[in-house]
Nucleic acid binder design. Sequence first.
DNA 1: CGCCGAAGTGAGACTGAGTCTCAAGTAGGA
DNA 2: TCCTACTTGAGACTCAGTCTCACTTCGGCG
Lengths: 216, 216
Amino acid sequence: MKRRATMSPVTDPGTRDAGLRERKKARTRAELQRHALRLFRDRGFAATTADDIAAAAEVSRSTFFRYFPTKEDVVLLDDVDPVFEEAFRAIPAGTPLLEAVSRSMRAGFASLDDEKRALEEVRMDLARTIPEIGAVLRERNTFGVEHVAAMIAQAVGRPADDEEVVVVAGVVSGARLAAQVLVHRDPARGYIDTFASVLETLSAGVPLADAPTVPM
Amino acid sequence: MKRRATMSPVTDPGTRDAGLRERKKARTRAELQRHALRLFRDRGFAATTADDIAAAAEVSRSTFFRYFPTKEDVVLLDDVDPVFEEAFRAIPAGTPLLEAVSRSMRAGFASLDDEKRALEEVRMDLARTIPEIGAVLRERNTFGVEHVAAMIAQAVGRPADDEEVVVVAGVVSGARLAAQVLVHRDPARGYIDTFASVLETLSAGVPLADAPTVPM
DNA sequence: CGCCGAAGTGAGACTGAGTCTCAAGTAGGA
DNA sequence: TCCTACTTGAGACTCAGTCTCACTTCGGCG
């Protein structure tokens, strides 16, 4: 169930308009997502029913659920993750791991076209505004620990079941959580920059790791 | 919507059997949870309806939802978190932070009575077996980053909005994620030991942080 | 061009979660 | 013992998500 568009440079069979059918489907999907995000923002997530979204996009409720298995998936399903993965793989060999992660975030975000970036920002906004969505995004979005671990294992040339790999993967996920909290507290900070800053801090070791506890 | 019981040290009105009513409620809640966990394990989470649980515990569906706002909450609502927090606060001053976290996990778990520990193990089992529950547990269980941050801030005597505090809190949460992955891969490892081992690794710095990437 | 199979769509039934209201039962204090 | 406040059960209601079935439309092929 990888919907994907893949966007590889030349003669990509995925991008080639494989007939009217495919183009129609892509348009319907985009319309559904566009209206859904608009409605979520205007009325709130819970107050927007699948019927509302379907009606706004002028399709039936059945069709809505055919495109998005759950209402949450409208927010969650992004074509963005693969972009970040690709960016990660594109980081030149020899880059220190955490820096590679941080740089691939920047590069990935920078490589989004305007439409995708706008959509991504609406998603982030929703994640910040509506706790319900934030929770689901944190859980399912972008990458789970296992997934991160697999990427990191490949990146540093270690086996996938290496314990240290899993630990760093956990740390990277934890860094994302921390960045989200920090951005939530001060929305003026960009997410990408905050995440990069957290990773930078961490590459010098875990702060406060040995800080002695004080009487409480 | 904090249902909680607060557990303050002396003459706790929450702990004192405040009459028949309170005891009945506690019993009903425990029965509901007991039957729910049994049914989830036997039939699976999705295949168990709220009606099933209510019927098994011999109350009405309404009553079930009065005790547990959602079906998931039966798994999630634990009386265990406060125990860990208390254990954390009880760690003697001067202990290095990550060690304090690790030790409070052990101490908290050790201080559970048999019934609670058994329940906790069923919950962990469910989290491992049923991805659906694992996801929710990871998200809502035990402590969110903000909560961990608040505890850590207090423990090291820093302001709650200290950025480093948030970063460590993220790392601790990440360590939990990593431990869960490791335990999932090798269920023979105990969760507590694994978590402690991850924290120990981390107190020496983030592993592989500067490992150079290799060509992919 | 016209036919046929496959894919996409809409209508609507159905299950189950979660909310709400109301009436009846019960604990516990006066 | 009686009154009040809390708790419960019954059942209606909304909405998510699944499924089936009939209808339409695309697109290939003779």
